[in-house]
Write a protein that binds this DNA or RNA. Structure first.
Lengths: 245, 245
DNA sequence: CGACGCTTTGACACAACTCAACAACCGTGG
DNA sequence: CCACGGTTGTTGAGTTGTGTCAAAGCGTCG
């Protein structure tokens, strides 16, 4: 793994080796970046969006706004994540994406994406794998909100987040930066912000996890996983071996 | 639309015209069916599954079992739905699929599926569209459980179900058959079965919807949609025009 | 006939929401 | 420099939606 590889290349490379040509293709497609400022929205629910964004750095927030004004956050895209790729075949995006912090992204238009799938099928498979993995996480999120208690949801959320950040090297010393407010967490977990606060206090009192100045520290991973009912994603989300394709 | 077309062909045909060759390919892949008996499981969470099933008739139940024994139902596959296609690139299925009624399915192994994508790219796109649409429904389901009240969830669920069944011609006279028990509904909506019963009574008392002998009748669609905060899926899930590809 | 699965109802408990208030922190502008 | 409003975090008190437990009714099927 080269130190100057993009987060997406690092992530895909974790699961299948990438050739020089494929790495060049990835580098090429991410050669021009731009910054979305904190708070700005760059995918708009209900509007046409035949563009995918590759997150280079920063945190996004993919959410769905209900007619009554409620907001449900689907996921928080971070470095290495593909954003909006599901909407490529739909007439309109079914969700919005906003920048939680300043976010650096690369833009990939649909024709270019289709080219990649055609010219680099192996790389295309890796991208499909990442998409399948993302969808599996949405399903897990669904199960979490539907069937776990508030504290279990919170525990599960941070464990999954930690694993995602590890994939792209953002958990250097066992703790990680997390710019989310308790309001963001509330809309992700299907709770009220006030209840999130109480739950976080509980996790702190149980010596499982603390958040201080937007740094998350997991103190007792084993106990936290037991509380959350957390399965290692490796158990399920691993790409099948090449020869099986 | 030919009367003997498979539900999948009907569904895909609703959104893009299919050529004779494509229809033949679809017919060919669905030429051998078999029945899964009521209650039997045909995709097993945690096990390898490089097979997709196309539902011909009957109702399935795609669910995820949590470590604590809780069950969250993701969706109920019906005629024309593809089952397990997400797991094709993952080492193990992240969910289980069970037959709610006897289900007739066609089995498509991964290599065959990849062939279709290669030989009939236009058809492949239609399949990808169906997958995107399914994922959008999972996202909507997530928002529903996270941010809607019990009665709104139930209302939304039946409206979406109705639209899905209409797509394959299973809502002939404004009402439709639904073999689900209140336990099934509970696990889908993230509620207890007892509360589902209370909510269904409420919907009946409001003259919005009744279920009698597994037939669902919507009495006041407008009011039900207002209650649920329901957007027509056509607004978002329509396939882009061919020339845009 | 009895056993079983599903629905329905009531009484009660509790998890999570709402409202209200305050503290800490921030950037901004006077 | 400090005053200020806005955002975020924290806590308490009271309410409510939903879960749990228990029991009965009612089909169906063996």
């Amino acid at each position: 793994m080269k130190s100057d590889a993009s987060p997406l290349a690092v992530k895909l490379g974790t699961f299948m080796p990438l050739s020089q040509g494929e790495l060049r293709c990835l580098a090429d497609v991410q050669s021009s970046n731009f910054t979305v400022l904190r708070g700005e929205q760059f995918v708009h629910q209900g509007e046409t969006c035949h563009t995918t964004f590759i997150v280079q750095s920063g945190w996004g927030c993919s959410s769905k706004v209900l007619p009554d004004g409620g907001r449900q956050i689907i996921t928080f895209p971070v470095a290495g994540d593909l954003v909006g790729i599901r909407s490529i075949l739909l007439r309109a995006a079914d969700h919005s994406v906003t920048a939680v912090t300043d976010v650096v992204v690369s833009k990939v238009e649909m024709p270019r994406m289709l080219e990649i799938f055609k010219d680099f099928p192996h790389l295309g498979t890796a991208i499909l794998w990442a998409m399948s993995r993302d969808e599996a996480m949405v399903v897990e999120h669904l199960a979490s909100i539907g069937r776990r208690s508030a504290i279990e949801r919170a525990a599960h959320f941070f464990l999954e987040l930690c694993d995602r950040l590890k994939l792209v090297g953002l958990v250097p010393d066992g703790k990680f930066h997390c710019p989310l407010t308790q309001y963001d967490l509330a809309d992700a977990l299907g709770l009220s912000a006030i209840h999130v606060n109480r739950v976080m206090r509980k996790l702190r009192e149980l010596d499982l996890l603390t958040v201080k100045e937007h740094m998350v520290t997991i103190h007792d991973e084993r106990a936290l996983k037991d509380l959350a009912g957390y399965d290692n994603p490796e158990d399920g989300a691993v790409l099948i071996r090449d020869q099986e394709l």
